[in-house]
Amino acid sequence: MNDDKLKDLFKTQTKKETENEPEDILQVVGFLVGSEEFAVPILSIQEIVKPIEFTRVPGTPNYVLGVFNLRGNVFPLINLRLKFGLPEIKQNKDTRYIVIKYNDEVAGFVIDKLTEAVRIKEADIDPTPETLNEEANLIYGIGKQKDRLITILKVEYLLKRAF
């Protein structure tokens, strides 16, 4: 997939209130993993659910918790804390499974806490810093929202690198 198609997935067109020029807006859902805030495009989210029972699968990486059944469909379940090299913690009242879909690929990701849906102007998203070469494919950019920074993840790479 080329970068232009990727950008189209992340953007929606809105009108500036004072002008007739279109303005690129990225609508994302934010969540915490550890103390960092991440986000994915809202259109890539199939569902967000409270933790449910899952079945371990032998021979998978430690961050793949197993599989879970959601309305008759079985999906892999990835712990983003472990995937991002953070220590595992016990699930609590804030823990959620965020089910992400890209094309025909679907997986559930364990997040520490859901934050909020956010609309970020494309102009307020900085490209991935060059020092993050290894993670460059995973990160779409760094969104600036008032007094905080949100790391926006590329869904297709998150799913591709999930296993």
Rank of each mutant, 00 (worst) to 15 (best):
V57G: 06
T95R: 04
I152D: 01
K113R: 13
Q13H: 12
L32N: 09
K121N: 12
L159S: 04
Y97M: 04
L65Q: 09
K93W: 12
I45F: 00
R96V: 05
N62Y: 09
P87K: 14
I111P: 03
G85F: 06
L159G: 11
L77F: 08
G72P: 10
R148W: 02
G30D: 08
Q145I: 14
E36W: 04
K50N: 11
R56P: 13
L9A: 02
E19H: 08
N2I: 03
L43Q: 09
T115E: 06
R148D: 03
Y102R: 13
Y63G: 09
Q27H: 15
L32H: 07
E21D: 13
F84T: 06
L153Y: 00
I78A: 08
K5L: 10
L43H: 08
L138P: 02
D112V: 06
I100S: 05
I48E: 05
K154T: 02
I45N: 01
F68C: 15
L82Y: 08
L153V: 00
S35A: 03
G34I: 00
G108D: 10
P51A: 14
K50S: 15
Y140G: 03
K50D: 15
K11E: 08
F38Q: 00
D147M: 08
Q13K: 11
N2R: 06
A123R: 10
G141A: 04
I25W: 03
F68G: 13
Y140R: 05
D126Q: 03
I120M: 02
V106C: 09
N92D: 15
V57F: 05
D24G: 14
E23P: 07
F10E: 03
E23L: 14
A117C: 10
K146N: 09
P51E: 09
V99N: 08
V106G: 04
T128H: 03
P61N: 07
G143Y: 00
D126R: 00
L86W: 06
R148N: 07
Y157G: 02
F54W: 13
L9K: 08
E53I: 12
E135W: 00
T55H: 13
Q46W: 10
V49P: 11
N79H: 10
V118C: 05
I152W: 00
L138D: 01
D4I: 14
L43V: 14
L82R: 13
P127R: 02
T95D: 10
K113E: 15
G85T: 09
E156F: 11
K11Y: 07
K5H: 06
K15Y: 07
V106S: 11
L86R: 11
D147I: 04
R56G: 09
Y63V: 05
I150W: 00
K90T: 15
E105S: 15
I152V: 13
K101M: 04
K90L: 14
E134R: 01
T55A: 09
P87T: 12
I125A: 03
E122W: 15
V28G: 03
I89Y: 04
P58A: 10
V33W: 06
L9E: 08
M1N: 11
P51V: 12
E134A: 03
R96L: 07
